[in-house]
Structures are given as C-alpha cells and as structure tokens.
Design a protein around this nucleic acid. Sequence first.
DNA 1: TTAATGCATGAACAGATATTCATGTGTTAT
DNA 2: ATAACACATGAATATCTGTTCATGCATTAA
Lengths: 124, 124
Amino acid sequence: MTDVNLNILDEEPQLCESSDRTAYPPALALEKAQRMADFFGLLADANRLRIISLLADTELCVGDLSIALEMSDSAVSHQLKTLRALRLVRYRKQGRHVFYQLLDRHVFDLYNTVLEHLDESAIE
Amino acid sequence: MTDVNLNILDEEPQLCESSDRTAYPPALALEKAQRMADFFGLLADANRLRIISLLADTELCVGDLSIALEMSDSAVSHQLKTLRALRLVRYRKQGRHVFYQLLDRHVFDLYNTVLEHLDESAIE
DNA sequence: TTAATGCATGAACAGATATTCATGTGTTAT
DNA sequence: ATAACACATGAATATCTGTTCATGCATTAA
C-alpha cells in the first residue's frame, strides 16, 4: 500500500524530458490520427446514432425518420447529407420519397460494440 | 441493372408517413444515444488519440507527452484532465512528475479496430 | 395548371470544445 | 531562502458543429 510503484512495469523507459523528440516512441501520425478522429466524430452525435440504429434494420424515408426520431425534416436531411458524403448510407428515390438504408456494416459493428460496453459498465 | 430495388429486402415496412410515431421501429433511446455519442466523442480528437496511442504502450509524464506530440504542456494537461475524469488513464506522482498510463483497454481495442479499418479502406 | 408534398440546401444562430495565456501550487535544486 | 521546474487550472478565444429558418426544386394530387 505504501509502494505506489507496485504494479508498474519496470522496463518503462522513464525518459522524462530527454528533449529529443525522436527518443520517444513514435506517436500516431497526426494526419492518420485526424482521420481516425473524423471517423469517431461521425458517431459522436446522438441523433446520428439513432438514425444509424434505425437504418440498420429498416429502409426508411426522410419523413419516416423525422417522425420516428421526433426531429425536423431539415435536421434529418442535414444529417443524412453527412452520412451520404461518407458513403455510410445508400439511398434510392421513389416518387417524391427518398429511401435510405445503412450501407457500412462496419460502422454498425462499432455501434453495437459500444452499445454493449455501455450496458455492462456505466461509463460515467 | 434496371431494377433499382434489386437488393432491397422486400419485407420492408414501407410505412412512410404514418404520422404515428409508435408505428415505427423503436429508435435508440435518446439518453442512451447521448451516452454513446459522448463515448465516441472521447475518441474524436486527433491529439487525444495520439495521447492514448502513447500511453497504451508506455508510461509517460506530461512533459514527455508534450515533447513527443509537439503540444504545449498546458494542452496536454487539459487533455489528460478529461481522460482522467473518465477514468481512462491512471496516474502516479513521483517527485514533481506525474506519470500517466492507459487504464481502459476497451478504448484501446476500439482504437485499434478503427486503425485497422482505415488501413484497409480509405474511408474518405 | 395550380397547389401541395417530400426533400435538399445555404445562411444564420447557438452550443460545444480545444487551444493559448496567465497564474497558482507543490517539489527539487542551488 | 530563492529560483527553477513540472504540472494543473480558470478565463478568454477561435473553431467546429448541429439545428432552425427560409427558400428552392422535383414530383404528385387536384
């Protein structure tokens, strides 16, 4: 209880201020990190997640989504625009309706992974 | 090639504007969606991802991180504050240094999942 | 043809967030 | 004791982002 260093790996570099940046383990490249961040950012909006959850199971048009999610048509449409831009959804036009469907299953896998994670451990 | 409805499931409800919200499949509850969004939001910042990538392999102090990532001490410290608030990192004080280490492996799993995903498919 | 519907979109606005800057606290070195 | 160092933090700032509002376009209904 007194030894705070108890469970720490002892082979840690302990560089501490070598001031030579190359002495440190290579960090994730900023550009790649930014692309990952953008990807996670897609899932970092509650309404977008709810749209994804619906479009994963069912093909729905904009009006359907706005009713089911109690959002405005415009808000839904804007969200779908971003999902479209990243090819996460496909859509087909039928008359004056536009039906959307989730295209990228990988995104849905991630969605489910985190959903289960939050169920077991209250992340807060 | 002419049938746009080719690969669409035919048992789709096609509700379209039933105007009864309960007629639609239940959307992810807004509160839960928000918690998921917050979780993804944690990973939606390039510098935070780079911090996570370093702390997953190595125990480092604030100064180390700021040098390795070419960020200001203050910016790093602020980021660590948010990671700390969510119990994603542990830290131990040693003299005037504070060493940080990634605590939540689940986050790192997600990190790696997306990292690999971006490697194979250029998401843009 | 005219009106109404479904959707898209640009601009404006509001809220969130990451960084910098200034400052404070505690520790080590001189 | 005094100075330098490592880190934390509040405030201010700038940027990003999601929604609303107004409008436009295409399609269907009257």
